[in-house]
């Protein structure tokens, strides 16, 4: 569809010429419409459905929906909010599926699916020790599409962890972490750790046996940081120096909010899983993508000798 101005044309919708000045018998609405026509005759033309649709579309997108020339194709990327993070032109090598297997984009897509299905699950879920498991059963029995939503969240999460790992392998095997992309690799490692932590905080929420004991063990692992403070305290130190506090117990205590896994731990993991960690990982994803562009697009064999 090409964009062109639609000129006002055709007769006004209401008749009654403006030339004769006889006393009017029109109602107030007719009077108003005649007044509008006298002052701004193009208003009626602007209200014609085709023109209206055209002008609204143009105001939103600025570019044509089906670009034909090179210039229009570039503009389609420059002028679009969603597409402008990508280059308007791209190397043919970067498009080969067997080079990237689309793994980076795939993990972004899975994160998107996780966000959407997670937001919908929040309408049903209650982060309480008494109710959480019942709500899980409701998802499988009494909520329309509930089990599909939970399944999508579950499978997307598992797939995302695998895809992120494969993506890291791809980047390693193609040497794509080398200068100038070193720091983006570091961001990628952080993203992988964040993905694992999101998985860890997520599987307490159903409050089933797996949830409870996996978090018990996870908190136990955090408690083992005591090893560091115990060893520091056993080093020779000046008399009267305060001992290093037990780091592991402090971490465990902050994570669980209590001695054992219970209501406090559930609400903490819930807030981490649905609010804090998603915001943090989103910021890192955005930065990761910005860096791809700034570091010169995805890696290419032109950059180095064999």
């Amino acid at each position: 569809m090409s964009v062109k101005e639609l000129r006002p044309s055709g007769p006004p919708p209401s008749s009654g010429g403006s030339g004769s000045r006889r006393p009017s018998t029109d109602g107030p609405l007719t009077k108003l419409s005649k007044a509008i026509y006298r002052q701004a005759p193009e208003v009626w033309d602007n209200l014609r459905p085709l023109a209206l649709f055209h002008n609204i579309y143009k105001s939103v997108y600025r570019t044509t929906a089906f670009p034909k020339t090179e210039r229009e194709r570039s503009e389609a990327f420059f002028n679009s909010f969603l597409l402008h993070i990508q280059p308007a032109k791209i190397e043919k090598h970067a498009l080969r599926f067997t080079y990237t297997f689309g793994l980076g984009l795939l993990s972004t897509y899975l994160f998107l699916l996780l966000t959407i299905s997670g937001l919908l699950l929040m309408f049903v879920y209650v982060p309480s020790v008494q109710d959480a498991y019942g709500r899980m059963q409701d998802l499988h029995s009494s909520v329309s599409f509930g089990y599909i939503l939970r399944g999508m969240h579950f499978w997307s999460a598992n797939a995302m962890i695998a895809v992120v790992f494969f993506h890291m392998c791809r980047v390693f095997y193609t040497g794509a972490y080398k200068a100038p992309r070193e720091f983006n690799w570091v961001i990628g490692v952080i993203l992988m750790v964040l993905t694992l932590i999101l998985g860890f905080t997520g599987y307490l929420l159903p409050w089933d046996q797996l949830a409870f004991w996996a978090i018990t063990v996870g908190a136990g692992i955090a408690g083992k940081a005591n090893w560091i403070s115990d060893n520091l305290n056993s080093l020779p130190h000046p008399p009267g120096a305060p001992p290093v506090p037990p780091l592991g117990d402090l971490t465990r205590w902050a994570l669980l909010g209590s001695d054992t896994v219970g209501q406090e731990a559930l609400i903490r993991f819930y807030v981490l899983h649905v609010a804090i960690l998603p915001v943090i990982i989103t910021l890192f994803i955005v930065y990761h993508m910005w860096r791809i562009r700034k570091d010169g697009g995805i890696s290419s064999p032109k950059e180095s000798p064999e």
Partner: peptide, 9 residues
Amino acid sequence: FFWPNVSYG
């Protein structure tokens, strides 16, 4: 803030 002063256990 994150270290509880009261235990609910």
